[in-house]
Computed example of a mutant assay.
Amino acid sequence: MPAASTTLRTLAVSVITLLTVTGCQALDDAGRAMGRADIVNELAARLDRALELTYSAEYQLPGGRTASITQSQDPARSAYEWPGGKLTVTAEATTRCDTASGRTVCTIEAPPAPNSKPSVVLFAAAEREGQVTPPMVMGLLTAAALDPGATITQSDTTVAGHLATCVDVRQTAGSFATCVTGEGALGSFTGQVDGQPAELALSRYREQVDGAAFDLPPGAGVVDRRQAGS
């Protein structure tokens, strides 16, 4: 089992054990009554399952901008694209592309360590760029479950044609709302990332991927640092 996946499951189990002792807080009437531990466990399981899937997800951002997450299992590779940037992780390389003043430059570095999951490496790198990722949302939910002052309202909806579970979290540490589809894809998020407002909503989900999603952007300049790092 991947290390990040194991960590998520262990964290969820720890939360469940704690809440078995302290009891579950009732939720607002606007949502179905559901224990904090139930929410964490359900979303952790979906997130864990999604790391093993092949899928492509497109997201709508404020101002008409878009982003996408693409991951494949055979071969194992992942890509995250947002306005002005792109990250691609494959068995051959980790590539970061930045666009400034109309010019795109891609820096190619050594691939992740053997046996590392591209999706795990990708999400960790994307978070460092201030992007919303499924593991980041899971971390926020887990923190909320451990906050006795937090109010969590759960509801069910449809996002981009897919059934999803949504939670609205109100707490002094920072309120947010998010949805996760039944497949385990991040359906939506509204909140803050590193103190900055962040918002996205799933606009399209497919269980197939286009190989071009892992290619360098057309006309991009290339800086290959793999030899320097070897």
Score class of each variant (00 low, 15 high):
27 L>N: 06
38 D>I: 05
15 V>R: 08
7 T>V: 12
15 V>W: 11
30 A>D: 10
34 M>N: 00
15 V>K: 08
14 S>C: 10
31 G>M: 06
30 A>C: 10
24 C>S: 00
22 T>W: 08
38 D>F: 09
16 I>H: 14
36 R>P: 11
31 G>P: 01
11 L>E: 13
24 C>N: 03
10 T>R: 14
36 R>C: 07
12 A>S: 15
23 G>S: 02
21 V>P: 11
26 A>N: 07
16 I>G: 11
18 L>S: 13
10 T>F: 05
14 S>G: 15
30 A>I: 00
35 G>F: 03
36 R>L: 06
16 I>N: 11
23 G>N: 06
33 A>N: 10
7 T>N: 11
34 M>D: 03
19 L>F: 09
22 T>K: 15
32 R>N: 01
31 G>Y: 07
23 G>I: 03
18 L>R: 14
12 A>P: 01
17 T>A: 15
22 T>V: 11
32 R>L: 00
6 T>Y: 03
40 V>S: 10
7 T>S: 14
18 L>E: 12
37 A>Q: 13
16 I>D: 14
34 M>W: 13
19 L>K: 07
33 A>I: 00
13 V>S: 12
38 D>C: 11
29 D>S: 04
20 T>R: 08
6 T>E: 10
15 V>H: 12
29 D>C: 00
26 A>M: 08
18 L>T: 08
15 V>Y: 09
34 M>S: 06
34 M>K: 04
32 R>Q: 07
20 T>L: 08
21 V>I: 14
14 S>I: 04
33 A>K: 03
36 R>E: 12
36 R>I: 06
9 R>S: 05
26 A>C: 10
13 V>H: 13
8 L>A: 02
12 A>D: 06
34 M>Y: 05
20 T>P: 00
15 V>G: 06
23 G>T: 06
12 A>N: 10
27 L>F: 01
9 R>C: 01
23 G>W: 03
29 D>G: 04
21 V>K: 15
37 A>K: 10
12 A>R: 02
31 G>W: 03
32 R>Y: 00
24 C>A: 05
26 A>T: 04
27 L>W: 05
28 D>P: 13
26 A>K: 15
14 S>W: 10
17 T>P: 06
27 L>Y: 03
39 I>H: 04
31 G>V: 03
40 V>A: 14
40 V>G: 02
9 R>F: 01
28 D>N: 14
29 D>H: 02
8 L>F: 04
15 V>C: 03
22 T>I: 14
24 C>I: 01
34 M>G: 02
36 R>F: 03
40 V>Y: 05
12 A>I: 01
8 L>Q: 01
25 Q>T: 10
16 I>V: 13
35 G>P: 10
33 A>M: 04
34 M>L: 07
20 T>Q: 14
29 D>E: 12
17 T>I: 11
20 T>Y: 00
35 G>V: 04
17 T>L: 09
21 V>A: 15
19 L>M: 12
23 G>P: 07
26 A>E: 11
38 D>S: 14
22 T>E: 09
14 S>P: 05
17 T>Q: 15
24 C>T: 11
11 L>S: 09
21 V>S: 15
37 A>R: 13
24 C>H: 02
23 G>D: 07
23 G>L: 00
